[in-house]
Design a protein around this nucleic acid. Structure first.
Lengths: 222, 222
DNA sequence: GAGCAATGTAGACAGCGTCAAGTTAGCTTG
DNA sequence: CAAGCTAACTTGACGCTGTCTACATTGCTC
């Protein structure tokens, strides 16, 4: 029947690559459409049926690619972590860690904070899922999501440890605790902004810098 | 007047006081049952129908006391703020601390943080509604909820200002920014704990103390 | 006692997640 | 090349949801 033969590049004859063929690339399109819907109308407004309609398939077609609505959301979150990775990695761009050159000063911390908040606010549809209670409280995380999430946490801790190491005077703070508290601050600020409790988005920069000041000072405790 | 003086405190001839009589005290019972249901089964599991069933009325009876599900949740959140008030008020319980002395030291900050986190974790069903995106993002807050919420924010800022004033060396930090950042930290930690992202609840005390250390140090910046 | 407003009920509707059963289409294998 | 297998997709149905409408009850006020 429907020979909507625009047929993307067919010949997806690859190996691990498991694309659907009927629709073309349904799984990918579902993930993108889901993110778009959440962004535009909020997470609560996302329904499997609307989603299916949006990409032009029947209500239950998505269930051949995701066992659950939950599983779909997990996959969206995973995509989010993939985009997030660059933010928390110690040296996001420029190839190497450059062992000796990497001096961390307050400016570097400021930059990091701004990038974190910027990601959270501008990718709220992902951030909500990645670090929101909806998925985590359910205890039904996809194995692959858990994997990528824990990897992110670990990278963050490494990042913080890097701060301490590259500070001239060795810090006395427990790195794990310091990482937890700083992350709490960043996460809390992100949540308050995303959730619309902090409305004055013009103050974001000032708040970020105040946080940087606090982080930096704490880092230098002897 | 009504001689069914058993309960009810009768004489509800006043104006603002609108108790139901048919059921007895439906509004109150709905609020309590809602909090209980959310606590036991999660916010997502709360439905108006289950709620009505739980208190023994028909599905639509609650709509005579709350225009919406949203309005009911707002009312629950309001109750939460009422319980919360004691936590952030500068002088929670009179007498304990010297009256006008009121010197704020690191121990006081530690205590405050612990109380905040303790409230959030042990009253998650309220905390979620009070500071969660579900209500705030909707832009449909009850007027009375807005009122009590903003009052709480204001009290928090006052509290922080008090910290600064009672520190021996006057702090150089902008009180508003400092309040925003410290609240971000507390809120972030609460969220991470409530949402099950920080699982090790044994570490709460250590994290709280690390935060206190950081707040305290920042307070003393000259 | 009459009337009225507050409070309760039952019925109905559209929308939700998702299970079960049927249909289509591309790949594999004889 | 035909047969068959299976992944991808569709339609139908069920029980749940929030909430609108219309109706019944109740107790207070005149």
């Amino acid at each position: 029947m429907s020979n909507s033969d625009i047929e993307n590049s067919g010949s997806s004859h690859g190996l691990g690559d498991h694309k659907p063929y009927h629709h073309g690339d349904l799984r990918r399109q579902l993930l993108d459409a889901a993110a778009k819907l959440i962004r535009e109308e909020g997470e609560a407004a996302l329904s499997m049926r609307k989603l299916a309609l949006a990409v032009g398939v029947s209500r239950t077609a998505p269930y051949h690619h995701f066992s659950d609505k939950q599983a779909l959301l997990c996959a969206v979150a995973e995509e989010g972590f993939r985009r997030f990775r660059g933010i928390v990695s110690v040296r996001p761009e420029s190839g190497e860690i450059g062992d000796q050159a990497a001096v961390v000063d307050e400016a570097a911390i400021r930059l990091f904070i701004r990038r974190y908040i910027d990601f959270a606010v501008n990718n709220a549809e992902y951030y909500d899922l990645m670090f929101g209670g909806h998925l985590w409280k359910s205890q039904q995380l996809t194995a692959s999501l858990k994997e990528v999430a824990y990897a992110s946490f670990k990278v963050y801790i490494e990042h913080i440890r890097h701060w301490q190491k590259s500070t001239l005077l060795e810090s006395a703070v427990d790195p794990l605790r310091y990482a937890q508290v700083t992350w709490s601050t960043l996460h809390g600020m992100s949540r308050l902004l995303i959730d619309g409790i902090y409305l004055d988005s013009a103050a974001v920069a000032a708040m970020s810098d105040t946080a940087a000041d606090m982080f930096w000072r704490q880092l230098q405790s002897t």
